[in-house]
């Protein structure tokens, strides 16, 4: 997850008749379930689409460090502090594998950072929401990582080899994070009156933003069809959102918390929950830069990057000097 509204070619899916011989052979490989590797021929649209998707995913991991990083210094026990620190560290690690996967498509990490900092590339809308109490550390793990897993598990079978392999590793860690988040939530929900209140408040604030993570309804998603034909996207947004609701509602019941949706009911006929759509106008606001924390998150990331410039330059200069000194000594 963490990739929303990734632009595809902007055109309808090409039919076999429209395809060149190379494109047809490429599509056949994908249809047979073969993995595409960095040195293989690929259509330019496939490459660009993947760079956008993997890049957006990588940026989400890096920006996603910030809302949880906000509580590392206030974690309530040594164990919770260590768990949270390890989780945020895993996210940095995910960012690293994903930038590496994107690099195999011919774009550098510095170029991707530059596109993030100049607003040319996006990251998931969810990280533009603030984390206000310790219960948010539970809600983020439980709901945000939970939603991410829904999308990422199928992406382990995605057609691009380096992306699929990065996803295998990421999924293992994400499901661990989700259980950890649920456990924080459970402790809060079974805790004191204040803690229960924090837990309910966190669910109230994160429920709809979590539903938005899957992107707008399929009816409005213009980029899905080509991505699905290329197996870059494996399921529709609505399928995944429904699966998330179906799995999460019983968990909320187990926690003794109420999902902030009056229309939420089990539908015997469809064997799914009926639920209210999130406020899509809010989603489009957040995506276009007007979420509660957009400006701040980007400013923080840019500051970290700019403040670190002298370190990166110095380490490169040191490497150059060391090489020159070695060569002079030989």
């Amino acid at each position: 997850m963490y990739a929303q509204m990734v632009k595809s070619t902007g055109q309808a899916v090409r039919t076999r008749d429209d395809m060149t011989v190379e494109e047809r052979a490429f599509q056949d490989r994908i249809d047979r379930g073969e993995k595409i590797e960095p040195k293989d021929w690929m259509p330019e649209g496939y490459r660009k689409n993947l760079i956008r998707q993997i890049g957006q995913h990588a940026h989400s991991e890096i920006v996603g460090q910030l809302p949880e990083g906000n509580w590392i210094t206030r974690a309530p026990t040594l164990e919770r502090k260590a768990n949270l620190l390890a989780k945020v560290q895993d996210e940095a690690g995910h960012g690293l594998y994903l930038y590496c996967a994107a690099e195999t498509l011919g774009v550098s990490r510095d170029e991707l950072f530059d596109m993030l900092h100049t607003g040319k590339m996006k990251y998931s809308s969810i990280f533009n929401y603030p984390t206000l109490t310790w219960a948010d550390m539970g809600a983020v793990g439980w709901l945000v990582d939970g939603a991410a897993i829904m999308n990422q598990v199928p992406l382990q079978r995605t057609s691009y080899g380096p992306y699929a392999r990065a996803m295998v590793r990421i999924c293992k860690e994400e499901s661990f994070h989700q259980r950890q988040g649920f456990q924080v939530m459970l402790t809060m929900a079974r805790g004191t009156k204040d803690q229960k209140r924090m837990a309910q408040d966190a669910l109230n604030r994160f429920w709809y933003p979590a539903l938005m993570m899957f992107g707008p309804s399929d009816k409005e998603s213009v980029h899905s069809a080509q991505s699905m034909a290329w197996k870059i996207k494996m399921n529709t947004n609505d399928e995944l959102r429904q699966k998330f609701v179906d799995e999460t509602v019983p968990q909320a019941e187990f926690l003794g918390l109420s999902v902030p949706d009056e229309k939420l009911t089990w539908n015997e006929e469809t064997e799914h929950y009926d639920y209210s759509e999130p406020d899509w106008s809010e989603f489009f606001d957040v995506i276009s830069g007007n979420g509660p924390c957009n400006a701040e998150r980007l400013k923080t990331r840019k500051k970290a990057w700019d403040d670190g410039a002298w370190v990166r330059e110095a380490m490169l200069a040191h490497a150059r000097k060391s090489r020159a000194r070695r060569e002079a000594a030989e």
Binding site: I62, Q65, Q89, A92, Y99, R312
Partner: peptide
């Protein structure tokens, strides 16, 4: 956390 000069 989240503020270092490079991801590594």
């Amino acid at each position: 956390c989240g503020m270092a000069p490079v991801i590594e």
